[in-house]
Computed example of a mutant assay.
Amino acid sequence: MLFDLPPDDVLYAALIARDAGYDGRAWVGVTTTGIFCRPSCPARKPKPENCKWFDAAGDCIAAGFRPCKRCKPLHDMADPSVADLLTALEADPEHRWSEGDVIARGFDPSTVRRAFKRAFGMTFLDLARQRRLALGFTELSAGRVVDAQVAAGFESASAFRRAFTRWLGIRPGDLPATSLLRATWITTPLGDMVAVADQHSLHLLEFTDRKALPTELKKLHARHPVSIGYFDIFDQLKSELDDFFAGCSATFTIPLTYHGTPFTQTVWDALRKIPAGRTQSYTNIAQTIDRPTATRAVARANGANQIAILIPCHRIIGADGSLTGYGGGLWRKDRLIAVEKSYADKDRP
């Protein structure tokens, strides 16, 4: 089970002892270097506060860590195509990967597609595009569209604009230099996210591969122009997300600004009252807000949520206990519920 890890102090002791018994069961990402390693890595040991622990090498990649060149944490992955392609991607993250490249490395594209879907919930080409776009996003925040195009590995400025529009719904040339709302890129163990905020509150937080993201950004941009940049409030968001995934706290205190009808906002408030580690159904929420016959409307409001994780629509499951639809993908919903199980365990006597 993902995220089923021993306490951090146990893992850190294993790291200090270079305990190979934890190899393949846990990986450590070092925040000061951006590298992830096996517990048995012979490299100099980081301080405990600079360690982030993962139960899958893919989560390290998704969180932005690079594999260590000394302990080679990808070397013994079960599928050789996954290890080979991840290593190649790390060596040249700006390359515009295609199925032809996969074939040229001796792998069948359909087999690779299934292997990456199992390991990371996305295809290798999707992962490569995210890496390129993340590089371009950083450059774009400084207002350098041409540099962004180059950093993202696209062949032309127009190609980058098309990709940016496809993923985020906003053309770089249309973005103001500064505005009330600013967008930034955030990495999490479940993949990259886009956050939009003003100086005082968060307006949007979505996974970059969510199909509704372009539409949501266009709607925000129509109300208040969105520029790419940074506010101090993003530091708080990153810190609270880090604590959440580390199993330290499921409490988010960052202020939120809703963009929805009064009914939709009522549903979102009800979602935020579901304790971490617990789940409810659409029917439960409808009864909670005294609208017992509005189950379908509750489902629509749940699907319209554009602040993932903080408004925990992932805590809604079917009345029969099955996972229901989730805009970020059912694999992420399953992992979020697994993350929160530890919080439920803490609440039990």
Score class of each variant (00 low, 15 high):
E240P: 04
G247K: 03
I307S: 07
C248N: 15
T261W: 00
T251W: 05
Y258I: 02
W268D: 00
T253Y: 02
Q280L: 11
A301C: 09
A319R: 12
Q287F: 12
Q287M: 14
T324L: 08
V267P: 04
A246V: 01
L310R: 12
C313D: 14
R300F: 13
D320P: 14
T257Q: 14
T279R: 12
I307F: 05
L256I: 14
F244T: 02
F252I: 05
T324I: 14
F244K: 00
L271T: 08
G277T: 12
I307L: 12
H314N: 07
T257W: 02
D269S: 12
T293H: 14
L310Q: 13
G329M: 04
G247I: 03
N305I: 13
I274G: 11
S239C: 06
T324G: 15
T283L: 15
D290F: 09
I317S: 08
F252P: 10
C248M: 05
G247L: 10
A301D: 07
L323Y: 12
I316S: 10
D290T: 05
Y326T: 04
H259L: 05
Y326N: 10
V298G: 02
A294E: 10
N302E: 13
L271K: 03
T253R: 12
G318C: 11
A246D: 14
G277M: 08
S239Y: 08
A297M: 10
C313M: 01
I285D: 00
P312I: 00
R278A: 11
R278I: 04
G329A: 05
P292C: 08
H314R: 00
I309M: 09
P262G: 08
L310T: 15
D320W: 07
L271S: 08
I307Y: 04
A276C: 09
L310N: 04
N284K: 02
G329T: 02
R315A: 06
I274P: 06
T264G: 06
G318Y: 13
